[in-house]
Structure formats: C-alpha cells, structure tokens
Design a protein around this nucleic acid. Sequence first.
RNA 1: GGUGAGGUGGCUGAGUGGUCGAAAGCAGCGCUUUGCUAAAGCGCCAUACCCCAAAAGGGUAUCGAGGGUUCGAAUCCCUCCCUCACCGCCA
Length: 423
Amino acid sequence: MLDIRLIREKPDLVRERLATRGGDDGAKIDEVLRVDGERRKLETALQHLNAERRRLSKEIGGKRAASGATAELEARVREVGDEIIDLNKRTSVAEEEQNNLLLEIANLPHESVPIGKDPGANRVVRSWGEKPRLTEPADHVALGAKLKLFDLERAAKLSGSGFICFTDAGARLERALINFMIELHVREHGYIEISPPFLVRRDCMIGTAQLPKLEADMYGLEENQLFLVPTAEVPLTNLHCDEILNIADLPKKFVACTPCFRREAGAAGRETRGIIRVHQFDKVELVKIARPERSYDELESLTGDAERVLQLLGLHYRVVELCTGDLSFGSAKTHDIEVWSPGQNAYLEVSSCSDFEDFQARRMRLRYKDSQGKNRFCHTLNGSGLALPRLFAALIETAQQTDRSIRIPEKLQPYFGGAEIRL
RNA sequence: GGUGAGGUGGCUGAGUGGUCGAAAGCAGCGCUUUGCUAAAGCGCCAUACCCCAAAAGGGUAUCGAGGGUUCGAAUCCCUCCCUCACCGCCA
C-alpha cells in the first residue's frame, strides 16, 4: 500500500500517477484524506484524555501512600475513563476505515513505465532467437494427443474443465523442466530453494496484495480461513513478513516450484484451448527481497534469470514492458516474457517480472535496518522462472519434427533421460 | 484430538498491581587506549502514531491478538491465535 504521508503531502502527484493506470483510484485519495484528517483529530483528543488519566492515577497513588482521601479523584478518573472508551472506539473505526481504503489503492507506476490504456501501449524491449521455420506446425493440443503427453478429457472427469493431467512422457517432461529450471536458478543464479506450504493465511494474501481486490479469483477454504496459493510469490514474499532484516542479508533470493490455483473467474472462452489457461498449474517462481537503492538493478537481473531458461532451451521469445494501464495492482514496473508458440502463431506470456518497490513490504511490515540503524521497508520483486504449461506447449510445438515426434533440447536431455519423444 | 508449559525490544532473558518502555547480557553505533588486529573502558541504542510550518521539544500507544476487572494492568480474569513438550491418531 501507499504511504499515507506521501498521499498527505503530495496528493496531486499521487492522483496523477494513479490516473495513468486508468482506474478510479484517484477518487479514493480524497476519501483517504478525509478519513485521515478525522482519525488524527480523534487520536489527538484521545491522547489528551489518556494523559489526563495517567496524571490523575499517579496522583491517587501518591495520596494513598500518604493516606490521603482519594474518592473525589477516583470519581473524576472514572469519568475520563468512560470518555476514553468512547473515543477509543471511534478512533479504531476511523483507523480501520483508513486502512481498508489504503489496501484498495493501487501502487504508483514507476516514472519509466510507458503511459497507456491497454496492452496496445506495451513496448517490446528486446527479443531473442527467431521463429522456427515449420511447415504446418501442429499445436500442442494435437501433439499432446498424438504422443499421449496429457489427457484433458480424463482430467475433466476428475476435476472439471480447466485441469491438466500430464501422462507418461508428458509427466516426465514436465518434471524434467521443473528440475532443469530449479537447478539453473540455484546453481547458476544464486537463489535459495524453498518448498513452501500451498495453503496460506488470509494475512499473507493481503500482504502480497491478492486481497482484498482479487478474492473472486482465489480458491479459499472457508472452515479455517486458508487460501490455496495462486502463485509461490505469496509464501515466498511473506516468508519474512513482520521481520526486520539485516542489511547485509539483502538481497534475499528464493526459488520455489508450486502448483498455482486460480479460479480464472470471467476468463471463460478466452485463451482457454488446451493447457494455456487452467485452474491449476505448476510454476517455478523467483522472489527477491532487496534494498531500495538496488531495486531496479535486481529487476533487470531477475528478468535475465528467467530469460536464461528460454535461451538454454533454444526457444524464441520477446520481452515486453507493460504500460501503466496493463500493470497489475501492486506492481510499479513489469516486464513480461513471452515465448513464441508456433501452434497458436502468437506469443504466450510465460513470466511476469515485477518490482513492487515497498508496496507489498509495507503491507506485510517487511523491513530492514539500514547502515544508520534506521528501519526501512524492503523492496520486493518476483517473476516466474517459468510457468510450466505454456513453456511445455511452446517447447513441444517448437521442437516438433515433421513426423510429429519431439526432439528434446540438449540441455534438457539429462533431466528428461532421453533425446526424443515418439510413439 | 487430549494434557501441560509458554508467547516481553534485532536476539537471549528478568520482571506478578502504580515511580516499568521495561533489569541484565549479546549484537549494533560512537569515543578512548592501540603500529595493525584483538582486547579493555566509557557512552548511545525499541517501534508506531499524534501535536508543532519545520527543527528543537512535547505527548500517547505498544510486553502474541481481542475483550474484561481496577482510580491505575506486562503483571489479575475471559476468549482466540501461535510455539514447545508429552500422550493418542495418521501419511
């Protein structure tokens, strides 16, 4: 969330930056400012009363020690106490109202982010490799069916539409990709491997800003108030919530592979063919907790770490810088990595590398002690490294041979235990 | 699931009704001593918020969370959450 002091001191700047996203968060700024003013008034009055009570209570203590009469004083304190209870309630209500508003206001886009309403204003910053020259390429659905790599019909029997059941060589290929990516990030990029819980508390979901806004997209377990993680970003980023880290320990770099659960409410009919958009998928996720000065350097290197996966697999991709209107709620700047899918004849988003600055850290009270001994909020970043089903689809489509067998990229062969897939 | 113990500052840990935002130690910062390092000595060192144009300064809250008792709560009572130990059950 945004710093209330920034909103107070530079409301116009905040409104202006928020307006570039295209939402109506600007209106919430007026609301927050109103509640903030009210809250502070209440708080000040409350503090005066508390001071009064302390003073009188101490006086009673002194008089009692000197065996003086205190009945009159006690009656006065009782009155003050009643007022305190009342004011306290009103202050808490205002505090909560302010906090709830702040939780619903999006992050400010970084100055370098191109201004624009929709994906049309996104900027391709670079691309790598070339589109493979294939004559009449089969798409992953056809390839998967022919080589029995996954079975969507049977998955639907188990769980309904939007679920994947990888089978045989397909399951092995997915596992090979996971191991390949995790090993790469751990051994060559210096990330610490984590195997986190897949169910998290509501607070965590608020911390990384999936909630309150995106509740309709999340799977939750009502009974015990836990949520299925929509991405490993949630447990990884929250790992150090409520902590004050040592500056020497930054940046912290984590990698984890977890299933990701998403309702995809309202996405019906869009990109839903095959395994491109599903309710559950595996994803290797990269998360960094960084000091603010290094934040944007860390974003560049994180993006590079994710790109490396595609380079080693020989898959053509491009990196797109999202415009202000396409930025997710909490992000200040985002690079999407899009791999080429010959079957769809389109680029598929396989990673979204974002810098949240202190937006998430403030929500989860994630701080570090700077060299002056002052506590400051960390910056948090994350990006997929990479999402499995789309990577899987792009890989088999790109690596297909004219007889519809698949040639496994050389770097992946040791993990897969073979050089090709054919029936 | 049952029983018991416990949750205090960056960490360890004392504190059972007022003068406690909290002893002591560790870590950190500054100074002194020193060829350098080490060691020693001295001092400083929680957070958030509010008031103030700002600085200086002042104030309030916070001892897991919420509620209660009381003139007054880290301290007493209740509820919840979490941790640990043992027992039961189970991959």
